[in-house]
């Protein structure tokens, strides 16, 4: 009896601990978001979103940074989606389960997801800018400096590699969810493997591919370390229009403003507003992805049953 009550008391303590821990985490999240929304949202105006920084970052808006982020993730998506989807197709549709190659690819994907973002930055500089960029300049432009410098295309490709695992994992999941009988029916009708994949399986998981792409974009839009040396600029009066232009980016702009603005107190409203915009953007993207995914799951389950 005594043992029982003591044990119950211990249980209550343990459960309380778990609840407190969870509340701490949720509380911290709430504090962070609350601070940013409270201080940031009131300073976001249409003018802020559509004008350029002025007055040594003490005034103006963040349009170039929004535009740069947008251009960056579009380029990134163009590169990462085909690559990620094809890899997922191979893993799910072509490779024999448990084959050594597939296992290696899986391990590589997992590890790629764990490579520190700053290492991607080093790699982007060493490989894309110095090796590929300078190589292109030597071959195509007779050594004139065109691509051998930080540029939006290199930053986008660096981010594409960083987000590759996201697309592969999400797409694989979606491919696996497509019922086997759909494939069997297609193959039985004489379609080839690729025709089956392309015309039957893939259309059923456009939502999955879309989810992957959106998650990749939301991840890519928030990364700063990989683009610091591969193309992002401190301040630019013009928007990027060419692949070898540098660009401003929201995350990098936040870093620059919070550490290098001439007067941090004066910059704070703008700074919080910029953080709010970036956060709203990534959360909106994530929410969209989660929404699509859950609807997709619901729609595919009934046919499975």
């Amino acid at each position: 009896m005594n043992h029982r009550t003591r044990s119950n008391a211990l249980g209550a303590v343990f459960i309380t601990l778990c609840v407190v821990a969870t509340l701490i985490i949720i509380g911290m999240l709430a504090v962070i978001l609350g601070q940013i929304v409270w201080n940031g949202a009131p300073n976001v105006s249409l003018r802020f979103l559509t004008s350029a920084p002025a007055d040594g970052m003490r005034g103006g808006g963040i349009f170039p940074a929004i535009f740069g982020t947008f251009a960056l993730v579009v380029l990134m998506t163009l590169a990462v989606v085909p690559m990620g989807v094809l890899t997922a197709i191979y893993l799910v549709e072509y490779s024999k389960p448990g084959s050594r190659f597939a296992k290696t690819v899986n391990i590589a994907v997992n590890n790629l997801a764990g490579v520190p973002s700053i290492v991607f930055g080093l790699f982007g500089l060493g490989f894309f800018v110095h090796f590929l960029g300078s190589g292109i300049d030597d071959v195509l432009f007779g050594g004139r400096l065109v691509f051998g410098q930080p540029a939006i295309v290199w930053a986008a490709l660096t981010l594409a590699l960083l987000t590759l695992p996201v697309v592969i994992v999400t797409t694989s999941e979606a491919l696996r969810a497509v019922p086997v009988n759909a494939r069997e029916a297609s193959l039985a009708l004489g379609a080839t493997k690729w025709q089956t994949v392309w015309k039957v399986v893939l259309p059923q998981c456009t939502a999955g591919v879309l989810t992957g792409a959106i998650l990749a974009v939301s991840r890519g839009a928030g990364e700063v370390a990989p683009i610091m040396f591969t193309g992002a600029a401190y301040f630019l009066p013009t928007l990027p229009t060419q692949l070898n232009d540098q660009f401003m980016e929201l995350g990098y702009h936040i870093y620059v403003m919070s550490t290098q603005s001439p007067n941090v107190e004066e910059t704070k409203p703008i700074l919080f507003a910029t953080v709010f915009v970036l956060l709203a953007l990534t959360f909106a993207l994530n929410a969209t992805a989660i929404g699509i995914r859950s609807r997709f799951r619901q729609s595919i389950r009934p046919s499975d049953a």
Binding site: L29, I36, E223, S258, K268, L271, L278
Partner: peptide
């Protein structure tokens, strides 16, 4: 989902929060 939301916060935003 709340904790997953935390994962969605870009690290530059966490850095900003810690700094300011």
């Amino acid at each position: 989902p709340t904790i997953e939301l935390l994962a969605g916060i870009p690290s530059v935003v966490l850095g900003f929060f810690a700094l300011i």
